[in-house]
Each structure stands twice: as structure tokens, then as C-alpha cells.
């Protein structure tokens, strides 16, 4: 018994390098062997609301997708960008991308490129999507989009005048969009879309954000100002599952290109790694507490 106590106390003072090593292994092994731990992903109500909201849109509807994340948060947000774009294109919805962060421009480019290269859909720039360039200003750009988009943006990302793009006909302000989808990892993000555009002009908004942002965004979700939320990597994985099922059901329809495989996104395969890492952290916390308790008792 005494030996066991000592082991627990010793564990409490474990060199953090061992903790780092265990975390690295817990993430690396499931990432390198995705089939090792195959736990079904259960969808949460917030992810289902997002899916239903986008699913209720009709062919030809206009959706503005805001890219407010960068390289650091790409692993968490990017899978949901791909899944959302796939869902939108599968419904024949016109997509307008706007970067609110300098890196958002590249993130939008990567997401569109990945969807195009999947060959699932026949999509063309200026027919199915338009990419707006980055403008400095954050929430003021959102305010500008809300009132007069053309006063902020005169060209698209390829320096083509917006008046020369047929897809931009009738698009002047936020109310000309049928839906706004925000992909964000900070400020400006979903809160700014609520405060500066969507709530005032009554335009439906959904969001996909990092896990740490969810606590700040959840009051808007509960009040209905944000219609559902994709919360971090788990949210992305849930959405990927729903889109995967939706696209699989469309397999024989003419919307999808023939002989193109439908594959679940990256977030799904990353969930095993996150599961193990979270479990390991909980084990660390329990061990840390046992050690703390025993040490306190020894000191008393």
C-alpha cells in the first residue's frame, strides 16, 4: 500500500516531457492508423440544425461564405469549409466567398480547390462561385457588406470588375443573400456577423468555429441569432458524416459526376486521435488529483 502511494506521488511530479511524449503518441498512432479505433460519430442538435438550414435552401439561392481563419486553425475549421461547400454545390447554390482575415483568402482558395479537384461537381468560377478579395477593416467590412457591398468591393479576387460578373447581378447588400455562413476562429467572426449585419437585416446565419469560440457564440445560438453551430473538429466530423450520407443518397442522380468516389472528410478520421488525446488528458487529471490528495495527506 505504501509503495502504491509513493508511485502515485511520484506520478504527480512526472517530468512533463513524458506527458508530451504520451500525448504525441496518442495523436500520432490514430492518425497513422485511422482504422485502429472506429467509433461511430453521433450528431449533436446544433450540427443537425446547421445541416437542415442549408438543406432547406433551393437551387440558385445565394450564400455568402465568410472565411475568418488562418493557417493555425486550418486543421480544425478547414474540414467544415469543405463539407459546407460540398453541401452547397450539391444543391446548385451560388456561393460567394469573402475573406475577413488576410489568410482567409488562401483558405477560401484551398477549400474551393479541394472541392473542384474532388470532381464531384461541375462547378465554374463566376457561374457557381465568386471569390471576393481581402479588405482590411474586420467588422467594418461586415458593416459594409450589410449596407453596400459594392462600395467595399469593386473587383473579385482575379481583378475582374464585379459589374462584369453575371453572378453578381442583384447582389448589392447582405439582404440580397439568402444565407450567410461564417467560418471563423476569432475576431471578426460569428459575433460580428450577428451584431453588424445578420440580426439587424434579418438574414439567416450559421457558423462553424473553433471549439474555444463556442462558449462565446453559444448565447447567440440559444437565442436563434445563429442557426446552429459546428463546434470545432467534432462539429466538422458530424457535418462531414451528414454530408457524406446526403451525397451518397444522391449517388445516382445527375447532380454528381459519375464514377467519382464520395469520401468522408478529414475531420472524421481525426476524431479518433482527438478521442484518445482527450481520454489521456482526463486520465492525467485523475492521476494528478490522486497524487495531490496523497501528497496533502502526507504533508498534514
Amino acid at each position: 500500500m505504501y509503495k502504491l502511494k509513493n508511485i502515485f506521488i511520484y506520478l504527480g511530479q512526472l517530468d512533463r516531457r513524458y506527458i508530451f511524449l504520451l500525448i504525441a503518441l496518442s495523436v500520432l498512432i490514430p492518425l497513422m492508423k485511422p482504422g485502429l479505433l472506429n467509433i461511430p460519430i453521433k450528431t449533436t442538435s446544433n450540427s443537425e440544425i446547421v445541416f437542415e438550414q442549408l438543406n432547406n435552401l433551393n437551387k440558385g439561392d445565394k450564400v455568402l461564405v465568410s472565411f475568418a481563419y488562418g493557417a493555425s486553425t486550418k486543421p480544425e475549421i478547414h474540414p467544415m469549409s469543405i463539407a459546407v461547400l460540398q453541401h452547397l454545390f450539391s444543391k446548385g447554390i451560388k456561393v460567394y466567398t469573402v475573406p475577413l482575415w488576410p489568410e482567409g483568402l488562401m483558405m477560401a482558395k484551398y477549400a474551393l480547390k479541394e472541392v473542384i479537384e474532388s470532381n464531384l461537381f461541375d462547378i465554374k468560377e463566376h457561374t457557381d462561385y465568386v471569390s471576393l478579395p481581402y479588405k482590411a477593416g474586420g467588422e467594418i467590412i461586415i458593416r459594409g457588406i450589410a449596407t453596400d457591398l459594392r462600395s467595399i468591393f469593386t473587383q473579385d479576387v482575379n481583378n475582374i470588375l464585379l459589374i462584369d460578373i453575371p453572378m453578381m447581378d442583384g447582389v448589392h447588400k447582405v439582404t440580397d443573400f439568402d444565407f450567410i455562413f461564417d467560418l471563423s476562429a476569432g475576431v471578426p467572426g460569428n459575433a460580428e456577423w450577428v451584431q453588424f449585419a445578420c440580426d439587424e437585416h434579418n438574414v439567416p446565419l450559421s457558423s462553424g468555429c473553433t471549439s474555444i469560440m463556442v462558449t462565446d457564440a453559444i448565447p447567440y445560438v440559444e437565442s436563434g441569432q445563429i442557426r446552429g453551430i459546428l463546434a470545432g473538429m467534432p462539429g466538422a466530423a458530424e457535418y462531414e458524416q451528414m454530408v457524406f450520407k446526403y451525397l451518397s443518397d444522391l449517388r445516382d442522380s445527375e447532380i454528381l459526376n459519375e464514377n467519382t468516389p464520395i469520401v468522408p472528410g478529414k475531420a472524421t478520421s481525426r476524431m479518433s486521435a482527438q478521442s484518445i488525446a482527450h481520454l489521456l488528458m482526463v486520465i492525467f487529471i485523475i492521476l494528478g488529483n490522486i497524487s495531490y490528495y496523497l501528497e496533502q495527506r502526507r504533508n498534514d
Binding site: 512526472l14 512533463r16 506527458i19 508530451f20 504520451l22 500525448i23 504525441a24 495523436v27 488525446a277 489521456l280 488528458m281 492525467f284 487529471i285 492521476l287 494528478g288 488529483n289 495531490y292 490528495y293
Partner: peptide, 15 residues
């Protein structure tokens, strides 16, 4: 961050 969070939770998350 994952590494620091793990290490910090081990040491700081105490009852």
C-alpha cells in the same frame, strides 16, 4: 497547445 494543455491540466486541475 495540445501539449501545454495536457501538461497544465495534469498539474493545475486539482480539487
Amino acid at each position: 497547445l495540445a501539449f501545454f494543455v495536457a501538461s497544465a491540466s495534469y498539474r493545475a486541475f486539482k480539487i
